[in-house]
Write a protein that binds this DNA or RNA. Sequence first.
DNA 1: TAAGTTGTTCTCAGAATGAGTTGTTCTCGA
DNA 2: TCGAGAACAACTCATTCTGAGAACAACTTA
Lengths: 255, 255
Amino acid sequence: MRETVVNEQDFLAAYDPRDYPAVAVTVDVVALTIREGALHLLLIRRGAPPYEGHWALPGGFVRPDEDLAAGARRELAEETGLGGERLRRIHLEQLGSYSDPDRDPRMRVVSVAHLAFAPDLPDPAAGTDADDAAWLPVTALASRQLAFDHGRIISDGLERARSKLEYTPLATRFLDPEFTITELRAVYETVWGHPLHAGNFHRKVLSVPGFVESTGASTERGGARGGPRAKLYRAGDARLLHPALLRPAREETVR
Amino acid sequence: MRETVVNEQDFLAAYDPRDYPAVAVTVDVVALTIREGALHLLLIRRGAPPYEGHWALPGGFVRPDEDLAAGARRELAEETGLGGERLRRIHLEQLGSYSDPDRDPRMRVVSVAHLAFAPDLPDPAAGTDADDAAWLPVTALASRQLAFDHGRIISDGLERARSKLEYTPLATRFLDPEFTITELRAVYETVWGHPLHAGNFHRKVLSVPGFVESTGASTERGGARGGPRAKLYRAGDARLLHPALLRPAREETVR
DNA sequence: TAAGTTGTTCTCAGAATGAGTTGTTCTCGA
DNA sequence: TCGAGAACAACTCATTCTGAGAACAACTTA
């Protein structure tokens, strides 16, 4: 093995990055939110080749003075039109890097994908630019043409989101700062895609230390179709849920 | 917000990557193994500035024709001297990207770190190159000078490894293809850093579907200090453990 | 006011977990 | 060769956690 390969030390010594075809580094953002009880994703319709007319994740080149997280947050700011505290409340984490040498026909592009959880936001079209940007329900993605390997990135992001809800309190990032347990349960139900037992969920959330804390207040009114006012909570200070809120095992025992 | 920022469409149109200072993309590998009951990490002593004489993760530039996973596996092959089936059995996954603009004093380098789990391997010094490469116990790292941000990458890798053992069967990748339950428990104990109840561990491992399957055989001899022969198992076909093997909550309730 | 909805708490059976015990098989050293 | 100790494997038992359902009061709209 070793013999068949250029010695790394020599390789580095002889290496000048500029001799190689340039590698571009981009950030892409899988930004999720919940609208009208359905999980939505921020997408942009491409106005130029390649993949003209296809939908793509918001993203772009990393600039020389910013790291990847800053680049991703900048892209998010540009496309949502958000800034300041509203922007800061959005959860943003690194998802992974996508590096197939042929993923972009123009040149070698390594993209570092990020995952964002945001509360319901105004339509991106409300901004000054007439980018064709929109929050689309993730259920409608199968029928859309997606650019590059963004379909793959999105499904990785969705799976990451589902699993993050299990062991972190990040579900609260889909909600306003004050929320009811029922709203929190609705987040789990829409991200996981199946209903949960209301009573058990309630018991569990309140028993996990640091997940939520009571504000003492209640909602102004009962539910739209009746029922008592609900108590209001805010996110607690836990970064991880112990014990976790595991999603019920799928009937196929994942073998 | 939006107004203060160059419009992305225009930015891309006007953008030629070669106008920017080149961004280099490297892969680094946090390769873990278990030797003599202790967790070890593959490190290389740097022979040239910057950080001359410091210890660094094995890694290097991604080549034009390979993706990141291939680059990481190549680095692993070069430094361990392994190939073929032995190399293929090593678990390799992406850990994350590290992108501080100043992380390498020479130029802008974005490194995509990977995490590897390997069974006990011969010393890297056995290869033809006299690289100063060695498997070092992770407990000895605090006292070593580490290059770049590799200390950070390593601790992220260790935390990822600890958590991966909870919900995947990857602990088996630290072992030979056939192993005993006690050897498997030893992997958990050294990675997690505390002893586990032998009886409960045994019950749990055998009850998780697809974690291990019996070979029907037993070890040739009993334990070094006595005891009966142990039954041999091999890894099952599960990719995820359901239910997971959760590590006991640390006494501070992680708030 | 009646009918229906929902937030919250409770009950109870079954499953999973932590801790300890038992029986047996083996190695080593006296 | 035998006894002491080690450790694999299986078991028991008390406790905790979970899933499912029921109860009930507080609210809505019709």
